[in-house]
Design a protein around this nucleic acid. Structure first.
Lengths: 217, 217
DNA sequence: TGGCGCGGATTGTGATCACAAAGTGGCGCG
DNA sequence: CGCGCCACTTTGTGATCACAATCCGCGCCA
């Protein structure tokens, strides 16, 4: 109805964006599901205009897909696309970790340990959605310390594309015997061992990739 | 006015998007310049609605920026941001080149040689805009052969952010003594030498980074 | 029984409008 | 002469509407 607010309020299109984004990251929107602008708008109590903007923004980030007739749906990446996405993660995420390393103090490591505990907890509980969310939170907290918004934006776009699939995979596999590369990363962080840190993060990503490959085979 | 067309027509918001995108890639929109939705809309003979969608899409791709009050402007990346962006390129582009390698036939290499001739030509002519455009075309043609749309989308987002700066840099520097890594890449492609190809592309990107660093110092 | 065409319902697109916040320039006061 | 305040203008936001293309299901025909 009006112009942007500098107070705590966020514009309607931003609220819609965040709501949809959260649903995608949590896997609440299943891959392949389709959305309608009117449905999104009414579901969040706004008009079509902000709903359209939020959807288009997510389409630009590849978190949603539009058919050539304008229909919106959650993408269902095939094996080749997943390979690309995990490859991008394994190239970009170690870089972010490395940039975070020099700024990592004891407080950050403690925070990360707490986040990793939650990851382990969700894993043990067999809560696939909670696991994916906690795992994202762990990585996000580490990379935030890198102070690299441009790189972070690239990685987040990839996460938006892989998260729905990850949720499915962990939901199906349950939680097999996973190597805990988070611990290794935290140790490397504490020891300021750059090579070990990069290696741990790369292994963590590649373990996820292998799991997905296996589950979709 | 109506729904999407399956014929040759593109929706208005798509046309606006392409027009703005081309202007950004060519450096026709200077970094720091500001746009208004009404200005964009009137400039292209459409209403505000499709103009808004196109602008928001470019903002999502980080090709444009919005202030916290909703004003739109062409970003002016600082040294730290440029470092991130070129680092992303040097990580992602060799991967795309490697994926293109197995599919690279003589016809592609010939096409790339022709594109590279144009790059050299624009460089010799001191045409900064034309050089950036031709250089992008060369890389795009190579990476297209990788058949990796998800990776390509990431790289294109980065190009949208670096291109305006590149244009400035080449315009100012003129065209100093540049090592021709394109030739090296083409030779590696012809010889099916993966390591040499990745190295050539990485060097090409890093030469650009060094040039920008030098010019903005 | 199975495919096909047609008609209504659904849906995305784009234009227009009202509104409020931010920006802008000039006038007046110190 | 300089600085701050106020009114006007510009600008983004969101709602609503008309329209056309698509989608979907029912019924008909082979």
């Amino acid at each position: 109805m009006n112009a942007p607010r500098l107070d705590g309020q966020v514009p309607a299109h931003e609220a819609v964006y965040r709501a949809l984004r959260a649903q995608i990251l949590d896997g609440a929107l299943a891959p392949g599901a389709s959305l309608t602008l009117r449905g999104v708008a009414e579901g969040l109590g706004v008009s079509m205009t902000p709903a359209r903007e939020a959807v288009r923004r997510l389409v630009a980030e590849r978190a949603l897909m539009m058919t050539d007739t304008g229909r919106v749906q959650v993408p269902l990446p095939d094996a080749a696309a997943l390979d690309e996405l995990f490859r991008a993660r394994s190239l970009l995420e170690p870089e972010l970790a490395l940039r975070a390393l020099p700024r990592a103090d004891k407080a950050l490591i403690a925070d990360l340990r707490a986040l990793d505990d939650r990851v382990e907890d969700r894993l043990a509980a067999g809560d696939a959605g909670g696991y994916v969310r906690a795992n994202n939170a762990f990585h996000a907290a580490l990379y935030a310390r890198a102070q690299a918004p441009a790189l972070m934006a690239l990685v987040e776009s990839v996460w938006l594309q892989t998260s729905p699939v990850m949720r499915r995979v962990y939901g199906r596999i349950g939680t097999g015997a996973l190597v805990d590369y988070h611990e290794a990363a935290l140790d490397a962080l504490a020891a300021r061992d750059a090579a070990a840190l990069a290696s741990a993060i790369r292994s963590d990503v590649e373990q996820g990739a292998a799991l997905v490959r296996e589950a979709t085979a």
